[in-house]
Simulated assay, not measured.
Amino acid sequence: MKNQVLSIYKQAERFAEITKKAIIAGNIARAKKCLAHAEHLYISGSNETKSVISNVYVFSVSSFMELRHCSISNLFPQNLKLEYNRQINSSGV
């Protein structure tokens, strides 16, 4: 695994895992920092970056939080919360 470049999708998956581990550990400050960084990437990134943050990161973290009955509205920054709401409303559930 010498200098292996991870795809943007794998990076988003790993970043989501870091965020989820912070939540499990009760390190809400670190989880909020991760979410804020994801928000920054979502706002300022390319279309591909926005898509990956939405489809991989937000989906993974929000699904995890729902399964654990965590309040998403308290943790998610504004734009990620809007994206989460778009996902929920478009899912047909």
Rank of each mutant, 00 (worst) to 15 (best):
L35I: 01
M65Q: 09
V58A: 06
G26A: 04
E48R: 03
A22Q: 08
V5F: 03
N89W: 05
N85Q: 14
L6T: 01
L75T: 00
V93S: 15
S62D: 00
R86M: 06
N74H: 12
K33G: 03
Q4F: 09
G26T: 09
I53N: 07
S90E: 12
L35D: 03
F59M: 12
I43F: 11
N27V: 11
R86Y: 10
Y42S: 01
V58N: 02
N74P: 07
R86L: 14
A12W: 04
V58Q: 02
G92N: 03
L82C: 15
L82Q: 04
V58R: 05
A29V: 14
V58F: 00
N79D: 14
F15T: 06
A38G: 06
H69S: 10
G26M: 15
N74L: 11
L82V: 13
A22H: 11
S46V: 03
N55A: 14
I23R: 10
L80R: 02
T19K: 05
H69K: 12
E66C: 08
T49Q: 10
V52G: 00
Q11M: 15
S51V: 13
V52H: 04
A31T: 07
K32L: 13
I28G: 14
L82W: 12
Q11P: 01
F15D: 00
I24T: 12
Q4Y: 08
S62H: 15
N55I: 12
A12G: 10
H37C: 12
V52P: 01
I72D: 01
E83T: 06
V5T: 04
K20Q: 10
S73G: 12
I23H: 03
N74W: 14
M1H: 14
S51A: 14
K21R: 13
S7M: 06
L75N: 07
S60E: 09
G45H: 10
Q11S: 03
Y42K: 07
R30G: 06
S51W: 08
A38Q: 07
F64M: 00
H69I: 03
A25S: 12
K10D: 07
I24V: 13
E39P: 05
E13G: 00
S44K: 15
V52F: 04
F76Q: 01
K20T: 13
S51I: 08
Q87D: 09
F64S: 00
K50F: 06
S44H: 14
G45Q: 05
A31I: 04
Y84K: 08
F64P: 10
S90H: 11
S90G: 13
I18Y: 07
Q4D: 15
G45V: 09
S46I: 02
K21D: 06
L80P: 10
I88W: 03
A16T: 08
I88L: 08
K50M: 04
A12I: 11
N55R: 15
K50P: 04
F15P: 02
